[in-house]
């Protein structure tokens, strides 16, 4: 199985962004990163990845809109994993309603996340 699928990580916390990038790079994914909504939107439209891991609360353009862009404006639709600090039920339901494929709430286990990523990309 070739692991050279591309993943976009959108997260405004530098440290988490870096650790995720490092972890997923180890597994031979192509990683692009964005620290805010605007950067992410640009990458989504210009160079659409296979999977996006995004926070919900982001500067400039929030995660919900990003999910919509990933689902409606990209062809084929990009898979989305939401990584959010809030684990309230309605936030999770909300994310799924918008079109997220998976939801991981912080604090999270990176191993679990990478397994989820693997599952999405192996299909």
């Amino acid at each position: 199985m070739s692991n050279s699928e591309s993943i976009l990580i959108v997260e405004d916390d530098e440290l988490i962004l870096k650790t995720l990038e490092f972890r997923l790079k180890k597994e031979n994914y192509k990683i692009s990163i964005a620290k805010n909504g605007l950067e992410a939107k640009k990458i989504l439209l210009e160079n659409p990845p296979k999977l996006m891991i995004t926070d919900l609360m982001l500067p400039f353009i929030n995660g919900r809109e990003l999910i919509q862009i990933a689902k409606n404006e990209c062809n084929p639709p990009i898979k989305v994993i939401v990584l959010s600090a809030s684990s309230q039920e309605n936030v999770i339901l909300d994310a799924f309603k918008i079109g997220a494929d998976d939801f991981v709430s912080k604090p999270f286990s990176p191993i679990e996340l990478s397994i989820r990523v693997k599952r999405f990309l192996s299909v």
Partner: peptide, 15 residues
């Protein structure tokens, strides 16, 4: 400070 900050975000072995 950095360690305690990142500590909040992870679970399990990483923590």
């Amino acid at each position: 400070h950095l360690l305690s900050k990142i500590h909040d975000n992870f679970l399990g072995d990483s923590q």
